[in-house]
């Protein structure tokens, strides 16, 4: 939060079939539909999130991620960071308020890995779903499926990781929490945070720009992750890997695909960080254990299937 970036605010995901996608993100994962717009986009949120939406689905003929947005503290922060982004040399696109229904103006920029990011300060405050603001109960009773707690982070694949690190740390005030280094001293993976979370956004090196590896949603316990695995089987959802533990972040996780092939993660636990923590380093020769702490072997599908 060093420069006023609070948290991952939203992500816009492309899906091949909206009806199937909604069954996946709402019935199976437990996100809640909060609105639709006249472009046909559908807006979803997880129950603990206070703003109107965190996931936007757009139906088109090619899956993947259109952009990811971070919420900043206030309008002054947005103005100041916009100037800093321009000063860094990035082209910045101003998107008017209400282009996404209920969201204030957004400032969009594309980083050297080919991914589009946005900053915004205002979004309609709906409060947490299903619990009151005063004397709240522990959890709402009508959640579906995995009952995802929040949209947590995304992992993107693309080139030019050093330049991306430069923007996120020096301009946006993120902190490098974890990294994977190859024998030549190149950083092939970087896990960046604006908070105590071990990552709010992560990048892995790939020659192809702009790819989505996964969007990730937080659960409370290992039992919840196991239950998610059960639901994946009950719904015959395409599974990738897990349930297992990561070496990187030590999160307890399971990966699966939405009906369009976009990878999703639900996870619990893992490490935390503070700005004075040195980055946790994994070496490329231990990449198997870094990703699959128990199997300790690389899985080709996990490394190469992208949208």
């Amino acid at each position: 939060m060093k420069k006023g970036v609070m948290r991952p605010g939203h992500v816009q995901i492309r899906v091949l079939d909206m009806k199937e996608a909604l069954e996946h993100y709402t019935d199976l994962m437990g996100l809640i539909e909060t609105d639709r717009d006249d472009q046909g986009r559908v807006y979803l949120k997880a129950w603990t999130e206070v703003d109107k939406f965190s996931v936007v689905l757009r139906e088109t003929d090619q899956p993947g991620c259109d952009f990811m947005g971070f919420k900043v503290l206030d309008e002054n922060t947005l103005v100041s960071l916009t100037q800093d982004l321009k000063g860094f040399g990035l082209e910045v696109e101003e998107i008017p308020a209400e282009e996404l229904k209920g969201c204030g103006r957004r400032v969009r920029f594309t980083v050297a890995s080919g991914h589009a990011f946005e900053l915004y300060a205002d979004k309609e405050y709906t409060g947490k779903w299903g619990v009151t603001e005063v004397n709240p109960e522990a959890w709402p009773r009508d959640l579906s499926g995995m009952k995802a707690v929040r949209f947590d982070h995304a992992l993107f694949y693309g080139p030019n990781l050093p330049e991306v690190l430069d923007v996120f740390t020096n301009v946006l005030g993120f902190h490098l929490a974890e990294q994977v280094m190859d024998p030549d001293g190149n950083r092939i993976a970087q896990f960046l945070t604006a908070s105590m979370k071990e990552h709010d956004i992560a990048f892995i090196h790939s020659d192809q720009p702009g790819q989505l590896h996964h969007t990730s949603y937080y659960l409370e316990t290992w039992e919840d992750v196991l239950r998610a695995a059960d639901l994946i089987s009950m719904t015959d959802t395409s599974i990738d890997i897990g349930p297992t533990r990561h070496g990187l972040t030590h999160g307890k996780t399971i990966y699966f695909f939405d009906p369009s092939g976009n990878r999703c993660e639900v996870f619990c636990g893992g490490d935390y960080t503070y700005p004075d923590h040195k980055p946790v380093t994994w070496t490329a020769d231990e990449l198997g254990k870094a990703i699959f702490y128990h199997d300790r072997q690389l899985n080709e599908r996990f490394l190469t299937v992208l949208t």
């Binding site: 899956p63 990738d240 092939g261 976009n262």
Partner: peptide, 8 residues
């Protein structure tokens, strides 16, 4: 075998 969803 990839995503099994027509996407990858």
């Amino acid at each position: 075998v990839g995503c099994r969803g027509g996407g990858c």
